[in-house]
């Protein structure tokens, strides 16, 4: 057994060709998942049981099952159903990329809505009351008081979730996508050199994690200067 430096030098550029796909998966499902998370949050705290209950069940299911199983259900499972094949979303669900985005979005949306809810619940009741006492409407209170403070409060958890999401993008390799992980697996299958290849790709992932944490650390520092928990 030896450590093949040449192989590392050879495979890193190949794996970096997949970084674009990794980033596409990350940013697209993060944007969509954030929007979904906000929607779920609003339904959840609407105070109407017929809106909040289904939301809670949705969140419960998506947080209670493995993301890999969710990916498999969407990619391998849904085509079994005729109405899916005839439906308007078929062009998206036919492609592994579309399926990965859908799965990652649905999953991360469930987690994010709970994170957002934590932030909203963390906002001091007195501040909402002060808003009420000034005559602000429910909507204005949410937009100008609750939301901006809640965002600051849940930034650390949000940043952790972005890292989790980034790690989950590697599961796209299980449905034939050639993201960084997918390429790494292909190279290992050809060369049978797991240490060299997997450790190299691991380093790339660690750098991305580090960059995510640094970015959010910076945003947090800037935004939360005056807001303490």
């Amino acid at each position: 057994m030896s450590f093949d430096i040449a192989l590392i030098i050879d495979s890193i550029p190949k794996m970096l060709m997949g970084i674009g796909l990794t980033f596409q998966l990350l940013f697209l499902s993060l944007a969509l998942g954030t929007a979904l998370g906000v929607m779920l949050l609003i339904l959840r705290i609407s105070g109407r049981w017929y809106l909040s209950w289904p939301t809670m069940i949705y969140i419960y299911i998506f947080r209670g099952t493995p993301i890999l199983v969710q990916i498999f259900i969407i990619y391998y499972g849904l085509p079994q159903l005729e109405f899916v094949r005839d439906g308007i979303f078929w062009p998206i669900l036919r492609e592994p990329f579309g399926c990965a985005i859908v799965a990652l979005t649905l999953n991360t949306g469930a987690y994010l809505s709970e994170i957002f809810r934590g932030g909203v619940l963390g906002v001091d009741r007195g501040l909402k009351e002060a808003g009420s006492a000034l005559g602000l409407s429910v909507t204005d209170r949410f937009i100008y008081i609750t939301a901006p403070i809640a965002i600051r409060l849940c930034l650390p958890a949000y940043s952790n979730d972005v890292v989790s999401l980034m790690k989950s993008t590697a599961l796209a390799s299980t449905i034939t996508l050639l993201d960084m992980m997918g390429i790494a697996r292909t190279i290992v299958a050809e060369t049978y050199a797991p240490y060299e290849v997997f450790i190299s790709v691991m380093v790339i992932y660690l750098i991305i994690t580090w960059a995510i944490q640094r970015t959010f650390g910076w945003i947090e520092k800037r935004m939360s200067r005056h807001v303490r928990q």
């Binding site: 057994m1 890292v163 980034m166 790690k167 989950s168 993008t169 590697a170 599961l171 390799s173 299980t174 992980m181 790494a184 697996r185 290992v188 049978y192 797991p194 240490y195 997997f198 450790i199 790709v201 691991m202 992932y205 660690l206 994690t209 580090w210």
Partner: peptide, 19 residues
């Protein structure tokens, strides 16, 4: 905490096999 779970698993499984 910074590496995809699937990567750790595959590294472990194939790495240990080779070793």
């Amino acid at each position: 905490r910074g590496t995809p779970e699937i990567l750790v698993l595959l590294l472990f499984y194939f790495g240990s096999a080779i070793t």
